[in-house]
């Protein structure tokens, strides 16, 4: 079992009783048997594989939403990519995306999620139930609603500044002065539940005998945690790091609603840049090049993820 979570789905790696014995292969039978895969293959091929391939090709053309190149796009080779790297907005956007990924997913959601899961193990039950319900609610809410709630919280006349004024501290226009900080905190608020659930499940699978044995051997609380618990759940940690990264890589609505990528381009991560280039400025080829880069980054993480889950497929 790679991670603890799939247990809820009926133990995928559990040996199945009585898988039909493989008899001599008959090609006709194999085709007949794989026929039910067809609707899924068609859907995935047309609507997922299609755009990926057309993305690779489209990024090599000068296609746009209007004008002469809208009807007959010309092949321009790597021109989109060279102008992309020459554009000062692009490196800045890459950097902002990295900051967003590291601060909100790798550090924020993971550390807070693990912290919450650990605290929940040793807290009073009513507290545990109520707090986990609150945290999960922020996660279950539709993203547009969560985005509005976060917008209202950080707005100049929002809850945060009202509270700071109440404490006698002058507030600032957070969304304007610290746009990245706001969207990072908002993404942590919205996404931590996922890590918390994963780590809660992982911690519950750590046999208490082991931590107790460490306690008897004189390991203190923090030592027990770093030397015993963390190594025991390391696979959950690595899978969770990858999944939160992938989820955060495609965050759009949250930033779009809260700051719109601004002020200027100060919170324009790659998904927003791709959207703006393609739909606001009509540079479809340019936007597609950004999309292709994002897809490639996603693909790299995807391969890592599959390698981690390999035993489940085999």
């Amino acid at each position: 079992m790679t991670t603890t979570a799939p247990t809820a789905l009926g133990a995928p790696s559990a040996p199945r009783a009585g898988r039909p014995v493989q008899r001599k292969r008959r090609p006709g039978r194999t085709i007949l048997r794989s026929a039910p895969l067809l609707p899924a293959i068609v859907l995935l091929g047309v609507f997922l594989l299609g755009p990926v391939i057309s993305s690779l090709y489209g990024s090599l053309t000068d296609s746009s939403l209007s004008g002469a190149s809208a009807s007959n796009a010309e092949f321009v080779g790597l021109e989109n990519y060279t102008s992309l790297f020459a554009d000062p907005d692009f490196p800045k956007s890459v950097l902002l995306t990295l900051v967003f990924l590291v601060a909100s997913a790798l550090i924020g959601q993971n550390v807070l999620g693990l912290g919450l899961a650990v605290l929940m193990q040793s807290s009073h039950k009513p507290v545990r139930v109520i707090v986990s319900t609150i945290v999960v609610t922020a996660w279950v809410l539709p993203e547009i609603v969560a985005s509005f709630a976060a917008y209202a919280f950080f707005n100049d006349g929002g809850t945060l500044n009202t509270m700071l004024t109440g404490l006698g501290i002058p507030g600032v226009n957070w969304l304007y002065v610290f746009p990245m900080l706001c969207v990072i905190l908002a993404n942590i608020w919205r996404g931590t539940a996922f890590s918390m659930l994963v780590y809660t499940a992982a911690l519950n699978d750590v046999p208490p005998e082991i931590t107790e044995a460490a306690e008897v051997d004189g390991a203190r609380g923090w030592q027990r945690f770093t030397l015993v618990t963390v190594p025991m759940i390391r696979r959950s940690i690595s899978t969770n790091l990858m999944l939160t990264t992938l989820q955060t890589l495609s965050v759009f609505a949250l930033i779009f609603v809260m700051t719109g990528g601004g002020p200027g381009t100060d919170s324009t991560t790659l998904p927003l840049l791709a959207y703006q280039e393609a739909f606001r400025f009509g540079e479809l080829g340019f936007g597609t090049a950004i999309a292709t880069i994002l897809l490639l980054v996603g693909a790299v993480f995807g391969v890592l993820y599959i390698r981690a889950l390999k035993p489940e497929v085999d």
Binding site: P51, G58, L249, S250, F279, I306, V313
Partner: peptide
């Protein structure tokens, strides 16, 4: 199954520009 697993990893947001073109 590998393809399906890989599909779960695609950042759909990133795909919206080519999907729009399609």
């Amino acid at each position: 199954l590998y393809g399906v697993l890989f599909g779960t990893c695609l950042p759909i947001t990133a795909m919206m520009v080519p999907v729009y073109a399609l």
